[in-house]
Write a protein that binds this DNA or RNA. Structure first.
Lengths: 117, 117
DNA sequence: CTGGATCCTGATGGATACTG
DNA sequence: CAGTATCCATCAGGATCCAG
């Protein structure tokens, strides 16, 4: 299909800023994609798909669509012939860094995760 | 049923501390419960259930079981006759505050959420 | 070959009713 | 009050298929 309507409408359960944030990124993949986009720089679909956690391609394409629709990533062509795109974090996306840093810190200190993003 | 096995086993997709954190709290309700536990003090089941986002009771009981099992909350009796319990954040649970603060800040600055937890 | 879309199936979510 | 049980809807995951 060409692609459905790209209205990325987020439910919002309450006016609480934490709840709003969770409505946007409260799942197991969204922040992992942003981690790669923010710390591993401009990434292509294949790059995201081959990350260590192996996100299924159908979930990846859906999440990317949502993130672009919400303005956290932008899809920009980086070469012609063949045309290729990469997903780059916008300023709105970069604003997520403190959240990711807090989670990284929590994981390192309390969950036994090694460093390296 | 009496209650299934209470083994709270977390999958872990990789050694990345962010991925580990997300394995633990990457869903729409876990951090909301911790928000209430941390900022609204010792809470009972009914208190959590009647929060503004109205978490269904079956999900609530499952999440509380998980959080107690992972050691972020502890279930302590606070009165006898009739016996009543409340869920109190442990030190491990309190360590989540920076994550919640980062999300609160993101929500306020970029998602139009009002303050008040 | 890359970047997805589709399909199928099992797991999870969510609303609400019900019980000790 | 503190959960369970139930029932349906939606999502996750994996495999595969298709277009440029």
């Amino acid at each position: 299909m060409k692609s459905g309507i790209d209205q990325v409408t987020l439910e919002h359960r309450s006016t609480c800023p934490i709840a709003r944030s969770l409505d946007l990124m409260g799942d197991k993949w969204t922040l992992l994609i942003m981690r790669d986009a923010l710390f591993l720089k401009g990434r292509t679909f294949a790059d995201f798909a081959s990350g260590r956690e192996r996100i299924p391609t159908n979930l990846l394409s859906g999440r990317l669509r949502k993130l672009v629709g919400m303005g956290l990533l932008e899809k920009v062509p980086y070469q012609q012939r063949p045309l290729r795109y990469e997903y780059r974090p916008t300023d709105l996306g970069k604003a997520l860094k403190p959240v990711l840093r807090a989670m990284k810190s929590y994981g390192e200190q309390h969950l036994g995760g090694h460093t390296k993003y």
